[in-house]
Design a protein around this nucleic acid. Structure first.
Length: 470
RNA sequence: CGGGGAGUGGCGCAGUAGGUAGCGCGCCUGCUUUGGGGGCAGGAGGUCGGGGGUUCGAGUCCCCCCUCCCCGACCA
C-alpha cells in the first residue's frame, strides 16, 4: 500500500533503520563486497564533491597547499611515535605479501598520514625560512573497524588531512584554531546548515599523538552527537619522533610545532541525520547535486518545451537544475524520488499551469506548494534557495536547544544525556566522572568556556558538553 | 573474540508430513493513465551459500565448511 512517505520507516520509530533506508532510497551508497567498505553512488558522491569544493576553497584560503602522499606506509614509521602506534595498531590493515612474495617489512595501509608526511617534513624543513609549512591531502584511509555504518563509520573512507609545521607553539595553536573556525565551523554552518559546537577534547578523547584536540560537534536528529571536523595541536611529539628541526634566526636548532586536521565522508552522514525527515533527505542548496528539478507532469509537446525553457532560464541564473521528463513513469513515483533525494526545490509544470502561465513550486524544506507566475519563477526559485540553508539551520538549532539541558551533577547528566546534550561544570566531572558517564554510554563531546567560546586548558571554570555519540 | 539470528530470481520474503520452487516489489513488451508510489494483458529471470551423506526422490533430514546480519569490547 503506497504511502506518501515513500515507504520510509518514520524517523521517530526507528532512527537507525530510517537512516539506512534514506541512504539506500536516495541512492547514495551501498555496501561494498568486503565487510565495512562502501560504494558511493552518484547522488552521494555528488554531495561529497560539493562538500570537497567547499572545504578545499576554505583550506586554500587558510594557506595550505595540496599534495599527495602514498597509500602504503612502512610499518616501522608507525612505531616512531609511541602513543600514535598505540592508538592505531588495533585498526591497521597490513600488507604482508607483494608480487607473490612475502615482504621483508610489512606495509601498513594508511590509517592517517602523520608518519609519512612528517618523514618528508624532516627532509624539507631546514630553516625558519621554510616555515610555516602547510600541506593538505585529499585521500582515502583505512581503519579496520568492528562495526560499520555507511558514511558514519566505514573501513575505508575518504577525507582530507592537513598537516602543518610552525616555528612557535603560539603560531601552531593559532593555526589549529583558524582551521577549526574558518574551515570546519564555517563549512558546516554556512554550506551544510548544521549548527555546531566547538571546543576541545578531554585527555581520553584526544587524538593519538596530539597534545590538544579541537572539535566541532553537531547534534543529529536523534539527539546524539557527531564529530564534524577536528583540528589537533601535535606540539613537538612528531617533530621529536621524526627529527623535524630547523635553524632559527640565531642559528640554533629547534623542533617544529605542528598541527593536523581532518574532515571525512562522515559529513555526508551528518547531513542526512541533521536535516532528514520522514520523507527522506533535505539538502542545503550548496551541497545539492541538483538544486532544482523541473518535472514534466504530463507527456505533451508544449509542456515539455515549457519545462526545458524554465530549466534553461534557471541554469542561466547559475542554478544547478535538471529536467525530469520521464513521463513513462508515474508522476507520484517521480515526485517521491526527488523528495527522498532531498532536492531543495521542485518545479512542476503541467498543461493546467501553462494555461495560466504558471508553474507549481514545491519546497523540500516544508513541502509547501505554491503556484508561481512563469515570469517570476527564476526570482522566486532563487530566493527560495537562498532561504533554505538558514531555515534548515534554524530548525536544527532549535532542536538542539530543546534537547540540551544544563545540569550540576554527573548523575543528572546521564539522565539528560540519554536523549540529547547535557552541559555541566567540568569540575563536576573529572576523570572519575568520565568513567561513570562511559558506563552509561555517554562521553564528553567537548570542553568550552561557560559562554560557549573556546578555552585552552582543563581548568575548573570550564563547562563540559556531554552526550551519546556516533 | 563472547552471545543471538539468517543464507531461496535484482531487492524483500514464503515454502506447511521430503515429491522436482512460489509471492510482493523491481525489470522487459504492448495498450491505457500521467497533478503524490496508477490499471489491464503478456513476458524474462533461480547452481535454493558450498561440500559430503541418508533416500527411489532433498530447499526441506544428518555432518563439515563458508559468508552475512544484530548485541557487547574499538572509532573520523
Amino acid at each position: 500500500m503506497p504511502s506518501d512517505k515513500g515507504g520510509l520507516t518514520p524517523r521517530a520509530e526507528d532512527f537507525p533503520r530510517w537512516y539506512q533506508e534514506v541512504v539506500a532510497g536516495a541512492e547514495m551508497a551501498e555496501n561494498g563486497p568486503v565487510r565495512g567498505t562502501m560504494v558511493i553512488r552518484p547522488w552521494g558522491f555528488g554531495i561529497w564533491e560539493l562538500l570537497v569544493a567547499e572545504l578545499d576553497r576554505r583550506i586554500k584560503e587558510a594557506g595550505a597547499e595540496g599534495a599527495y602522499f602514498p597509500l602504503f606506509i612502512p610499518e616501522s614509521f608507525l612505531r616512531l611515535e609511541a602513543s600514535h602506534v598505540e592508538g592505531f595498531s588495533p585498526e591497521l590493515a597490513v600488507v604482508t605479501h607483494g608480487g607473490g612474495k612475502e615482504l621483508d617489512e610489512p606495509i601498513v595501509v594508511r590509517p592517517t598520514s602523520e608518519t609519512v608526511i612528517n618523514h618528508f617534513f624532516a627532509k624539507w624543513i631546514q630553516s625558519h625560512r621554510d616555515l610555516p609549512l602547510a600541506i593538505n591531502q585529499w585521500s582515502n584511509v583505512v581503519r579496520w573497524e568492528m562495526r560499520t555504518r555507511l558514511f558514519l563509520r566505514t573501513t575505508e573512507f575518504l577525507w582530507q588531512e592537513g598537516h602543518t609545521a610552525h616555528s612557535t607553539e603560539q603560531e601552531a595553536t593559532a593555526y589549529a584554531l583558524r582551521i577549526l573556525r574558518d574551515v570546519y565551523l564555517d563549512t558546516v554552518e554556512k554550506a551544510a546548515g548544521i549548527p555546531a559546537l566547538i571546543g576541545h577534547k578531554t585527555e581520553r578523547e584526544r587524538f593519538a599523538g596530539a597534545v590538544r584536540t579541537w572539535t566541532s560537534e553537531g547534534m543529529m536528529g536523534d539527539g546524539k552527537a557527531l564529530q564534524l571536523g577536528t583540528s589537533h595541536e601535535l606540539g613537538q611529539n612528531f617533530a621529536r619522533a621524526f627529527d623535524i628541526q630547523f635553524s632559527d634566526e640565531t642559528g640554533a636548532q629547534q623542533f617544529v610545532w605542528q598541527t593536523s586536521w581532518g574532515a571525512s565522508t562522515r559529513l555526508v552522514g551528518a547531513l542526512i541525520m541533521a536535516h532528514g525527515d520522514d520523507f527522506g533527505l533535505r539538502l542545503p542548496p550548496a551541497l545539492a547535486p541538483s538544486q532544482v528539478v523541473v518535472m514534466v507532469v504530463k507527456e505533451d509537446e508544449p509542456t515539455e518545451r515549457a519545462a526545458a525553457g524554465i530549466a534553461a532560464d534557471l541554469k542561466a541564473a547559475g542554478i544547478r537544475v535538471r529536467v525530469d521528463d520521464r513521463t513513462e513513469t508515474g508522476f507520484g513515483r517521480r515526485a517521491i524520488d526527488w523528495e527522498r533525494k532531498g532536492v531543495p526545490v521542485r518545479v512542476e509544470v503541467g498543461p493546467r499551469d501553462l494555461a495560466e502561465d504558471k508553474a507549481v513550486v514545491v519546497l523540500r524544506h516544508d513541502r509547501s506548494k505554491s503556484p508561481v507566475a512563469l515570469s517570476a519563477l527564476v526570482a522566486e526559485v532563487g530566493s527560495a534557495l537562498e532561504r533554505t540553508t538558514e531555515l534548515l539551520y534554524d530548525e536544527a538549532l532549535s532542536f538542539r536547544m530543546e534537547r540540551t539541558t544544563t545540569v550540576d551533577t554527573v548523575e543528572e547528566a546521564i539522565e539528560a544525556g540519554a536523549t540529547g546534550f547535557a552541559v555541566l561544570p567540568w569540575s563536576a566531572v573529572g576523570d572519575a566522572g568520565e568513567d561513570r558517564l562511559a558506563e552509561a554510554g555517554i562521553t564528553v563531546r567537548c570542553l568550552q568556556s561557560p559562554d560557549g567560546s573556546l578555552a585552552e586548558g582543563e581548568e575548573d571554570s570550564l563547562i563540559a558538553v556531554v552526550g551519546k555519540a556516533y
